[in-house]
């Protein structure tokens, strides 16, 4: 994959779709993880592919391309959405945050990312970006989160590895819904 960019001003300019592309092209101006970006995109380009192939932001994963698995979840104006169900021209004028935009500028993980490390909240890591995005949006919300709501949000990503327990514990910790002590965990149901 080649990332074709030219930096002329503070806006990064992403160069054109492949010459063979037959569908109409659109000029878009967007904020991606706080950076102003201008690009020319073809009508049928999915937001996932814009992020991954044009911008090289491969943290956003692609599982199903039908909205079910949650691996591609990103924040659109701070609201979690499936990036596989959005066309790149639809995000003109809007802001996107991906998993690459969650850590502090100096690379310090955010609270949810740190909790995933501390509580072993991932195995293969395929589902992790989508979960971190969804759960970070919960953590950044002003209204307190309930345990039911947390489980409901965990349900929005499919994890084939962990059985969800450690993800749930990490999220409980980061959300201030204190995780149970080890000896209290035995009676809990497994996953959401």
């Amino acid at each position: 994959m080649t990332e074709l960019t030219s930096t002329t001003s503070s806006r990064r300019r992403i160069l054109a779709p492949p010459a063979s592309e037959s569908t109409a092209r659109h000029e878009i101006a967007v904020q991606i993880n706080g950076e102003a970006i201008e690009a020319e995109v073809e009508s049928r380009l999915l937001l996932t592919d814009f992020l991954r192939e044009r911008l090289g932001l491969t943290g956003t994963h692609v599982g199903c391309e039908q909205g079910s698995c949650g691996a591609c979840t990103v924040l659109l104006d701070d609201v979690p959405i499936r990036s596989c169900l959005l066309l790149a021209p639809q995000i003109d004028g809007r802001s996107i945050r991906t998993v690459e935009g969650l850590a502090e500028r100096d690379g310090t993980p955010n609270k949810m990312q740190q909790a995933f490390c501390d509580h072993h909240g991932l195995q293969c890591g395929f589902c992790t970006p989508g979960l971190l995005i969804t759960l970070t949006s919960l953590a950044e919300r002003e209204v307190p989160v309930t345990l039911d709501e947390l489980d409901h949000h965990l349900d929005s990503s499919i994890c084939r590895c962990t059985g969800y327990m450690n993800i749930r514990n990490a999220a409980r910790y980061a959300l201030g819904l204190m995780p149970p002590r080890v000896e209290d965990r035995s009676g809990e149901r497994d996953g959401p």
Binding site: V79, P80, R82, H152, H153, D155, S156
Partner: peptide, 9 residues
Amino acid sequence: IGQPPIRNR
């Protein structure tokens, strides 16, 4: 209906 990100769109 679906999950929160589905209902957000």
